[in-house]
Design a protein around this nucleic acid. Structure first.
Length: 641
DNA sequence: GTAGGGTTAG
């Protein structure tokens, strides 16, 4: 290149610069820029475009802007390139500014802007609005790239109607059988759970490309239709590693780990993604030893996801300390942590109830750009709630840039569990005002807030609104909450009627909530009936025996009480007693029912009695309602670990 | 020049 007898022309500069752009080799490109200046060819249209493209692609937006400012007069192509540059660096307001000033917006500029909005966390609506403007303006017809972006925006918003309109439009424009569009359409319909439409699109494709087949297989797996996915998979003449990965995961979900294993051994080209998939399959199915074995084998090729998957595997097997230990090795080996690393680890701290570990992790988190991420933030909120620090949870919530339904729900549940019932409901209102739709978990939080606050009528209103206003079908968990809610306030008959009218069969948790209420209100007649139901479902239900035994004792029916206690003693031997624990100065203190092992147990019991007296005399209820503390601590029922 | 599958996370 430096040989003086070779004259470098504009085409050479442009070709070399585009290579530098693709390789993102900033150093080489800058040297070429120097030669361009020396030769005086920087004002050529071709070289100017190549320079701008090179700098934009290397994320050197300032240099790109300098080229643009110098040369955009009379070179219309530079406007689009500048806009694309801004979009790549996610500088949407700058991109929009260029767009508004452009002498002529071509399809690339429109599409780049739409795709830019699609990339930002809350930009889907904006992307769709922009597409609408594009159509209304009517000067530039959309192409297959535009439709690809718009379909993904429809999928993210979950708007089937809008997507169908787009589908009709792209047929009119003649893109129906375009390779990339088939996959995008199937993806869209699968996300909207419109599987019949997805299959129809697939069947209409004369020669479905691998993209389309993979999209349908993924959709079917997500809907739990693994058999159908298998049929498509088996019928394919060509498969790639994506296809294999999807099916390995698919088998492991309906519980066919053997088939996952078989397919894993058949994959022609294993990638790190295949290995990660298999580690996660083992982890989810509690085969932690096999997961570890594979993890050890991947030593040379591990990527951060491999580590995250393994950490999560330990957590799924309740090996929380192991998970934290793996994180320490990760840091020691200078392996980059990702958002998932932190959300997984906060979850571990939340399971351990380890506030101090969580705080150490948060100190690490602050040095990363993940603090405002929704997943990480939600895990942090949840951790602080579970570790008893609701103020920190609140602070963590505020730092989340775009709180979604999971983030709101974590805080609502946290408030409810800490007894801040009206705050929880206020938060629910705030969430609705922000345009975030609740899900089933949100209602669990809202209902438990009503239970804690004794707000029966409000709770019933929320329960009825689930299906009516939000099309959320109540699950057993919700029914258990409502039975608890009615039962605690003494509306036992209503609670029993509700159970009888349930469209799904009540489980022992639902009946258990009613039995608890029978005991509190001393309704022996209903209590015996309910206990019988529970023992039908689970003959070893310790809590059913405990509660009925307590009821007999309360009524002075000592003979029956003794009988219950006898059965109970036999059962209790078989089960590990539950326990609770607190962490103090990096030491965990464990307590089980009536134990006197702790060296300071006398002080602890005295304090507990004092607290109980205070709680029972100070708590104000709107009407008679059984105090929560009675059911959980003093009856000797076991808490779950 | 515009899009770009599959793995981990609440």
């Amino acid at each position: 290149m430096h040989r003086s007898h070779m004259r470098l022309n504009e085409t050479t500069f442009s070709t070399v610069l585009s290579v530098c752009a693709r390789l993102r080799s900033l150093h080489d490109g800058k040297q070429v820029h120097g030669l361009v200046l020396k030769s005086g060819s920087e004002s050529s249209k071709l070289v100017g475009s190549a320079l701008l493209y090179f700098y934009a692609n290397c994320f050197e937006i300032k240099e790109a802007k300098q080229v643009f400012d110098l040369l955009h007069e009379g070179n219309e192509l530079l406007w689009s390139l500048m806009l694309v540059g801004y979009v790549q660096c996610n500088l949407m307001s700058d991109a929009m500014d260029v767009f508004n000033r452009m002498p002529a917006c071509d399809v690339v500029a429109w599409t780049a802007l739409i795709s830019g909005y699609l990339k930002s966390e809350d930009g889907c609506e904006k992307a769709l609005q922009l597409f609408l403007v594009m159509r209304e303006t009517g000067e530039v017809p959309p192409n297959e790239f535009t439709f690809d972006c718009v379909l993904r925006a429809c999928g993210r918003v979950g708007d089937v109607r809008e997507g169908r309109i787009v589908h009709g439009l792209l047929i009119r424009y003649g893109f129906e059988f375009e390779h990339s569009i088939g996959g995008a359409l199937i993806d869209f319909y699968c996300i909207c759970k419109a599987m019949d439409d997805a299959k129809r699109v697939y069947d209409r494709l004369v020669n479905p490309c691998l993209n389309a087949s993979n999209a349908l297989i993924e959709g079917l797996i997500l809907m739990g239709k693994v058999d159908e996915a298998e049929t498509i998979f088996d019928g394919l003449t060509e498969k790639n590693s994506v296809t294999y990965n999807l099916m390995i995961k698919g088998y492991s979900l309906s519980g066919r780990v053997d088939d996952s294993e078989r397919l894993f051994s058949e994959v022609p080209q294993r990638t790190i993604l295949t290995l990660n998939t298999m580690i996660s399959v083992y982890s989810r199915n509690r085969e932690i030893d096999k997961a570890l074995e594979l993890f050890d084998k991947t030593k040379g090729e591990r990527d951060p996801v491999t580590w995250n998957t393994m950490i999560s595997g330990h957590i799924q097997s309740a090996q929380h300390e192991e998970a934290l230990r793996l994180y320490v090795s990760m840091r020691r080996l200078s392996i980059g942590q990702t958002q998932s690393t932190f959300s997984v680890l906060f979850h571990a701290c939340s399971c351990l109830g380890s506030l101090q570990q969580g705080q150490v992790l948060q100190a690490h988190l602050i040095k990363t750009p993940f603090e405002s991420n929704t997943f990480v933030g939600t895990a942090l909120v949840d951790m602080y709630c579970k570790c008893g620090s609701i103020d920190d949870a609140q602070r963590a919530f505020i730092r989340i840039s775009y709180p979604n339904v999971a983030a709101w729900t974590a805080l609502i549940i946290g408030y409810a569990h800490h007894g801040f019932c009206s705050e929880a409901l206020l938060l629910f209102d705030n969430m609705l005002e922000q345009g975030v739709d609740p899900n089933g978990a949100t209602f669990t939080g809202v209902l438990s807030a009503c239970i804690r606050g004794g707000m029966v009528n409000e709770g019933m209103k929320f329960f009825r609104s689930m299906e009516k206003s939000y099309s959320i079908t109540p699950t057993l968990k919700h029914y258990a909450c409502v039975v608890d809610l009615l039962g605690r306030s003494g509306r036992l008959q209503e609670a029993e009627d509700l159970i009888k009218e349930m469209p799904i069969e009540a489980d022992k948790v639902v009946w258990g909530a009613l039995l608890n209420a029978c005991w509190f209100w001393m309704d022996m007649e209903m209590g015996e009936r309910v206990a019988e139901k529970i023992l039908d479902l689970d003959p070893n239900s310790i809590s059913a025996y405990v509660i009925t035994s307590n009821m007999y004792a309360g009524l002075g029916r000592w003979g029956e009480k003794m009988m219950m206690r006898k059965i109970l003693r036999r059962l209790e031997v078989k089960k590990d007693p539950g326990c609770s624990w607190v962490e103090l100065n990096n030491k965990v203190h464990v307590f089980s029912v009536e134990d006197r092992i702790h060296p300071h147990c006398n002080v602890i019991y005295t304090t507990l009695e004092h607290l109980t007296e205070n709680v029972n005399s100070n708590v104000q209820y709107d009407y008679v309602c059984m105090p929560i503390i009675k059911g959980n601590i003093f009856t000797g029922t076991y808490c779950q670990r």
